[in-house]
């Protein structure tokens, strides 16, 4: 079968590329578009390292056939910081809270947190735990990640008040 042209709104900008039938969103991001933040930890939806936002919802991009999301809006970790490089609240909280070690799960964790906080500015600890329950981290033991996401929520709320 022939490749098709896929058009997406990617981190706020239009993107157009060729994809073979069945190509995953993850492969498209990494191999066609050069966006490497989303990682391939298992390629079967089991680890969450490839999580991106699809029309605002977190998805495991390894499980999404890219030709099925023509015209959708996709956000990756590359599109989270401001254009001048300023980190957003979640990134800052992960940085300051020492919530990264090897860094391989970080992109997925941050994208899940972005989605959670966009819909729920004041999540409980349990809600944070549920949000990241599909994301595997082998280094941290999760406590620092949970704390960072709760801290990010506080930071965002403070900014919103100002």
């Amino acid at each position: 079968m022939a490749s098709t042209v896929v058009s997406l709104r990617l981190n706020g900008r239009p993107a157009e590329f060729l994809a073979r039938p069945g190509t995953s969103l993850l492969s498209s991001l990494r191999d066609s578009l050069g966006l490497m933040a989303a990682k391939r930890g298992c390629a079967q939806g089991g680890c969450g390292t490839c999580t991106v936002l699809l029309d605002g919802r977190p998805v495991m991009s390894c499980l999404v056939a890219v030709e099925t999301i023509e015209g959708a809006s996709v956000r990756t970790l590359e599109g989270v910081a401001a254009d001048d490089g300023r980190l957003d609240a979640v990134q800052s909280a992960f940085l300051d809270g020492f919530a990264t070690q090897c860094g391989f799960c970080t992109a997925g964790m941050i994208m899940v947190a972005e989605s959670l906080l966009a819909g729920n500015p004041d999540p409980s600890r349990d809600e944070v735990v549920e949000a990241i329950s599909g994301n595997v981290c082998r280094c941290t033991g999760y406590a620092s990640i949970i704390a960072a996401i709760l801290d990010a929520a506080r930071r965002k709320r403070e900014v919103d008040v100002v």
Binding site: C42, Q44, G46, V129, S133, V136, R138, Y142, A143, I145
Partner: peptide, 14 residues
């Protein structure tokens, strides 16, 4: 064979 069968504590189990 994968993370659905090789169990480890999740964020909820710590």
């Amino acid at each position: 064979a994968d993370f659905s069968e090789y169990l480890m504590p999740t964020a909820a189990d710590i």
